[in-house]
Amino acid sequence: MIEGMTALYIFMLAAFTGYEVIARVPVILHTPLMSGSNFVHGIVVVGAMVALGNAETATEQVIGFIGVLLGAMNAVGGYVVTERMLEMFKSSKEN
């Protein structure tokens, strides 16, 4: 169980990490990087799976199902488009 203060520390450190990781990114990679970070929050599918797994009533099941569906689309779609874009970036020295 992650307690209150520990969670705060995690939030703070993760926020600084996110800021630092992106800070020096060149403009040429803005679009793929946005797509990449969009993929990373696709981890939400894991949470949606847990929510659906613990759903009891029909309402909860329906909402949980939608959650997993949307989360899976976020993760898979985010991955596919990011990979497609990054795949194309080549230096003239490689050719």
Partner: peptide, 25 residues
């Protein structure tokens, strides 16, 4: 935030990292 609700550290970290990176972007 929902990661905290579900007590899932991977969601907390990944979500917050993207939140900060996305804000900067």
């Amino acid at each position: 935030f929902e990661g905290y609700v579900l007590n899932n550290a991977a969601m907390i970290i990944a979500g917050t990292v993207v939140g900060a990176a996305g804000t900067l972007l």
